[in-house]
């Protein structure tokens, strides 16, 4: 494989887990020649104050996203289903722990 030109270094999306037990959260992105360098750069750019204990890097090109134009139609199946929420239900007065 030939060397990537510096200006073709891919963009990596960076996800950081701030504490054991928590989810990895998107924090931003950066350019790097490969995944290992992306992880090392992410450490320097996004965890200078102990913000993280684990880092995921994902090539930005590998992410597929829903499209904002279709947002309404795409998410509206959930609009009329209030019964999916616990507050939909009437509980008798005095019932405990429910």
């Amino acid at each position: 494989m030939s060397n990537l030109n510096e200006k073709d270094w891919p963009l990596w999306e960076i996800f950081i887990q701030s504490k054991r037990g928590l989810e990895h959260k998107h924090v931003g992105s950066l350019h790097a020649a490969d995944a290992q360098m992306a992880i090392e750069n992410a450490r320097d750019v996004y965890t200078r104050r102990q913000e993280g204990n684990s880092i995921w890097v994902v090539p930005a090109s590998a992410i597929s996203a829903s499209s904002p134009e279709d947002q309404g139609a795409f998410f509206d199946p959930a609009d009329d289903k209030a019964y999916r929420h616990p507050t939909f239900y009437t509980m008798p007065e005095g019932a405990k722990y429910i």
Binding site: N5, E6, A32
Partner: peptide
């Protein structure tokens, strides 16, 4: 930057 590119290329060859 050139060295980083070269190193990445070498590493990817080794993994392949």
């Amino acid at each position: 930057r050139e060295a980083a590119s070269a190193y990445a290329a070498k590493r990817s060859k080794r993994t392949a």
